[in-house]
Design a protein around this nucleic acid. Structure first.
Length: 294
DNA sequence: AAGAACTCCTGTTGGC
DNA sequence: TGCCAACAGGAGTTCT
């Protein structure tokens, strides 16, 4: 499901109900998601107070008072649902499928000391939760190879050019590579390349000059990465199929897509007149305008 | 060693 | 209407 803007929206939704609360009880309803749950997962959480809820790339990081960090990843279909104390126990209608029930995909339930119940639901089970010592977090194999946060100062044209020098892989694949820029996913890469006027098929190495210095292309690209993500966060992320923020709110950035999901439609760029195409790169859909993205 | 292909899993959708 | 292949916001692992 979620790329950086959706994960950040989820983080902001969970923060007020998680931070400073304790886990009164944790229900773990299966042995694994994408990975096995940690040993004694529920025992290690129970009674712990959450000091803060952070985000790195598409990972949510709950810092626990006892010194461990609960790392949560939503995969493709993971989501959190918050039930307020005293609220009708009925799940929000938006979440009900034709059978009137999605509870078979409710894999983890947090019962918090402030009375809220937080349900982790994940139909495809590509998400996961693990626990690591706070001191080990930066060295953890899932974290240590992540590239820069796209919204931080560190992502500059010079950085991206340096990371792409000599790369023969496509610009699309390079931007999806979490080791280079951490947090972009399939939708936002398409949107970024459109805004920057760059073909997704172009070699990533074209972002650097022969000297390794940033090219004009990357000077254009980097500000668009930041702008698209900021716009999407501002909009509460994108709602496709079944994505919801934890309170059930819908994001609305999907109404701003210029290319994603728009195959066959006319390019919206003034004076372009091209037609949006869908191609497959690395087994995933890429949407772009062949006329104005070069 | 880079880059591409394959894999995990379930639900929805679109074409016949 | 029903059936079934294609596709879905991710990314670790395995190949070439």
């Amino acid at each position: 499901m979620p790329e950086l803007p959706e994960v950040e929206t989820v983080r902001r939704g969970l923060e007020p109900v998680l931070v400073d609360a304790h886990f009164d009880r944790v229900e773990q309803r299966r042995a694994n998601l994408r990975f096995a749950f940690p040993e004694r997962f529920t025992e290690r959480l129970t009674g712990q107070r959450i000091l803060s809820l952070g985000r790195r790339a598409k990972y949510l990081l709950a810092n626990l008072e006892g010194g461990e960090v609960l790392i949560m990843h939503l995969g493709m279909s993971g989501r959190f649902v918050i039930q307020r104390p005293g609220a009708n126990a009925q799940r929000p209608g938006e979440f009900l499928n034709e059978a009137g029930n999605t509870s078979r995909h409710d894999h983890v339930v947090f019962f918090m000391s402030n009375g809220t119940t937080i349900i982790y639901n994940d139909a495809r089970r590509f998400g996961f939760m693990i626990l690591v010592d706070a001191d080990e977090l930066e060295n953890h194999k899932l974290i240590r190879n992540l590239g820069v946060e796209p919204l931080g100062e560190v992502l500059s044209p010079a950085y991206l050019a340096a990371r792409c020098v000599g790369k023969k892989t496509s610009l699309k694949a390079a931007l999806l590579d979490q080791r280079i820029v951490a947090g972009l996913g399939n939708i936002y890469v398409c949107e970024v390349l459109y805004r920057a006027g760059l073909s997704p098929k172009r070699a990533a190495g074209a972002l650097a000059l022969a000297s390794g210095a940033p090219s004009q292309r990357v000077e254009k690209l980097v500000p668009e990465i930041k702008a698209v993500l900021e716009d999407a966060i501002e909009a509460g992320g994108s709602t496709l199929r079944d994505y919801h923020a934890p309170e059930g709110d819908l994001g609305y950035f999907q109404h701003s897509f210029a290319v994603y999901g728009r195959e066959g439609l006319e390019c919206a760029r003034a004076g372009c007149g091209g037609t949006i195409r869908r191609i497959v790169q690395g087994g995933r859909s890429t949407f772009y305008c062949p006329k104005c993205q070069r």
